[in-house]
Write a protein that binds this DNA or RNA. Structure first.
Lengths: 228, 228
DNA sequence: CAAAAGTAATAGTATTACTATCAATATTTA
DNA sequence: TAAATATTGATAGTAATACTATTACTTTTG
């Protein structure tokens, strides 16, 4: 898997950036160190000036790649969801049994990223943490409808849609496959957050993972005589 | 119900404010118009200066009530959850059947607020919208652990805990009552948001409400032979 | 080797997020 | 009712943020 992922280039809507960060050394540095810095100080305190200091570059150089830090967050999170989607498709592709396939899919989207694939400038473990802590901020804005129209969230939407399709493969009488898919995707981030900061609001801990919980939740709902 | 709610004073952790906004006319004006203004321009663009202009008061006067806008958001959302908790307790109190009780509880926490009770300076319909759009921002911060220790989220935690208890009353063998309770509470806000901005990520619309979806989700999981 | 592209440095603006001071006005209490 | 006290408003000021513009230097490429 690692070998194949080496050639992965996530296709990100090119209106999110002004200049493709993958196209230059500075661009890659911006991505690499923005992940480290956002993880370190949080997105709210993160500024292009601080990032510039960190990479020994000028603030104005960073502005040539991204209009503002919001767009950078959209870029990072899009990359993350694209990376997850790749794993999802790659891993579940060969599974013919619908239940087994869905089971694997839930596992992939709900697990914590534990290993940095280390071939690239992107630290996936930290990026996963950033998505848990900051993703909501990318869409809880007054501009969300415009940005959605522009296609800034299309990778995420495609991912949720894939889960929905797998749910329907298991039970095409279940009435809420889309909501269930979005509940698992977003709810997983939330359960991870609760585990780290509000342990009294979750059953998840070292033993019980969000994966365990969500697999149980989903399969309880599917092919269940109560759901009709 | 309205009559009783008239005397409601939600008990908010007094470290959230510098001076109790309920204690003066200006304080109440701050609460009343901050709800209108945040709904109008969003929390990110909201500033105390703009609020001051709106209520014909000085920026510095508002700073005497709240340290910053983050604390004001904590105040508003705490009030909202306290108000919901009151409704929950009041409405479910007399119900003896555990399933019926849980059903009613889910209804209360997942429904959209449609009517402003209009007795007070607080517009609950708009406040509900603010909670949907902005609540996550109150805890997705680097300060969350300290603020949690200070008790800034205790009303929310107590509410989720009440749902958890009701879930356990219905099925005390179910393994994830706390996660299910937090999934419903947070997931409900999320489904409402999706309904308004990402309709392709939810089955909820005018006909299917988040209430319908979550009641189905919860009762499929409880007393289900698969859940063991 | 010259042109083009990319990057850095500097400077500058408007806004934000406050703090401090003092005067004016209301309210409380002796 | 006068004095004391609390509350609010006005003004000013600071440091940081979120940019934009210009110019010059450096590297790549044709």
């Amino acid at each position: 898997m690692k070998f194949i992922l080496q050639d992965l280039k996530v296709n990100i809507n090119n209106n999110i950036y002004l200049k493709d960060p993958e196209s230059s050394t500075l661009g890659k540095k911006i991505i690499e160190f923005s992940i480290l810095l956002i993880d370190e100080i949080g997105f709210d305190s993160f500024t292009f000036k601080k990032l510039g200091e960190k990479i020994g570059s000028n603030e104005s150089s960073i502005y040539r790649y991204f209009e503002n830090k919001h767009k950078l967050l959209l870029y990072l999170t899009s990359w993350y969801w694209g990376w997850l989607e790749y794993q999802l498709v790659f891993t579940t592709n060969s599974i013919s049994d619908a239940k087994e396939k869905l089971n694997k899919a839930i596992e992939i989207i709900t697990r914590a990223t534990k290993e940095d694939s280390s071939f690239s400038h992107i630290n996936e473990v930290l990026l996963n943490k950033i998505v848990i802590n900051e993703y909501s901020k990318s869409y809880l804005t007054k501009e969300v409808d415009n940005e959605n129209k522009e296609g800034y969230f299309s990778i995420y939407k495609r991912l949720v849609n894939r889960i929905k399709d797998m749910i329907m493969e298991v039970d095409n009488h279940y009435k809420y496959p889309t909501s269930l898919a979005s509940t698992v995707t977003e709810g997983s981030l939330h359960q991870h957050f609760l585990k780290d900061h509000f342990s009294s609001l979750t059953d998840c801990d070292e033993k019980i993972t969000p994966t365990t919980y969500f697999i149980n939740l989903v399969f309880n709902s599917l092919n269940n005589q109560k759901n009709g």
